[in-house]
Design a protein around this nucleic acid. Sequence first.
DNA 1: CCAAAAGTGTTCCCTCTACACCCATGC
DNA 2: GCATGGGTGTAGAGGGAACACTTTTGG
Lengths: 229, 229
Amino acid sequence: MNERLPIFNSAVSIDCVLFGFDNGELKVLLIERNGQPFKDWWALPGNLVGENESVDQSASRILHELTGLSNIYVEQYYTFGEVDRHPQGRVISVAYYAMLRLSGDKALKPLTSYVKNVQWINIKEMPKLAFDHQNIFNKALEKIKRRIKHLPIAFELLPEKFTLTQVQNVYELILGKKLDKRNFRKKILSFGVLKELNEKQKGVSFRAATLYKFDKRKYFKLFGKEISF
Amino acid sequence: MNERLPIFNSAVSIDCVLFGFDNGELKVLLIERNGQPFKDWWALPGNLVGENESVDQSASRILHELTGLSNIYVEQYYTFGEVDRHPQGRVISVAYYAMLRLSGDKALKPLTSYVKNVQWINIKEMPKLAFDHQNIFNKALEKIKRRIKHLPIAFELLPEKFTLTQVQNVYELILGKKLDKRNFRKKILSFGVLKELNEKQKGVSFRAATLYKFDKRKYFKLFGKEISF
DNA sequence: CCAAAAGTGTTCCCTCTACACCCATGC
DNA sequence: GCATGGGTGTAGAGGGAACACTTTTGG
């Protein structure tokens, strides 16, 4: 680790598990590969880390290239370094999960020569994935299952104004189980980080729900105290 | 990511935060560097990932070279990938924390040309560290603070047979606060993974404490249910 | 007999859980 | 008026926190 660095041909890549919530469904953005290996397979979006960017920056860049958006919530969660995980050489991959407010409208799909299709896919209908991406995806789900209990990541998936039922929906999809409505509301409101708006849902054919928004200021004040779902 | 891999000169290294518990103190194994850069500074043990080993294997190898021991408990926890973290080139480092039963006797110190000293240092008396190792160390502590609440990692630091006071000691050192003795014992025993032995502490000049051991079989049965300290 | 640590129960409070009905709205 | 989800309270159980004294042992 001193003198000259003895380096062999390795590469570091980033893989991103980008989650979106839309219409009551939890989705992941997958790409369909256009080149070898695993041509025509579905895969997680990813790319090599550039020479002059940190791994965090690299993840943000990849997400930006994919969606056209900046400021996507993104967290590193694990590094996959098996010797044979890439058939063409040694590639160590740092994995990130990311979360996005889907509004039905967004979800741009800028194709490149490497990618012939980009699609939001319901996590309950995942196709087979290239490389070890199934494993990478599974681990992302595990991580967010754990982290959603401490961190307000659910709100990264929701629009700015949301109903409590939507919040509950996100929790249920991530945790993979039904929750009691009354208990859920008591708890989520007891954190004191949701602000009730003088505004109701619109365009629904039933009683309109009250809208809330996530109060980041209050959340950062509470930091230290941990949310514990 | 297809065709040929465009590779630049990067390297992947491993850094290990190896914890040990001895004599009521929580310690970390640090090395004193013998080469540039940061010659004579203290640093975390680490090395480059070899061409034919996974990152996990690499961490185990480094720990083995350092201590002569195999089967050290080790977990990956974060990857540090800032562009400028190594003054001699781009080095992305995958960090692991590890835990070891110190019995006063062990703690071998195989020096190399790169290392002029290896020492167990109380985490309350840490020197300045080379590179971004202070940051890597801090993050390791944060991680184990969180994980000790779910995972039985405390027992990795303890000898096979231990007293409840020793367990409490480890929890207090990692969490950085005093715990109530009666409540602690109730809770730790309520998990049902400690086996009381028909054996007492020896060689102490006061009432000898009952020895316990960690029952891995029971623990793995409980898996699914989570321990929650 | 003194020093040092082992070992042990109870009370209070708060949080978690289980559970079911009426309300508002659009069609 | 009916279908659809919105919104609400309570009782019981269990778990967490606070708290102090007696026991054992070696020296």
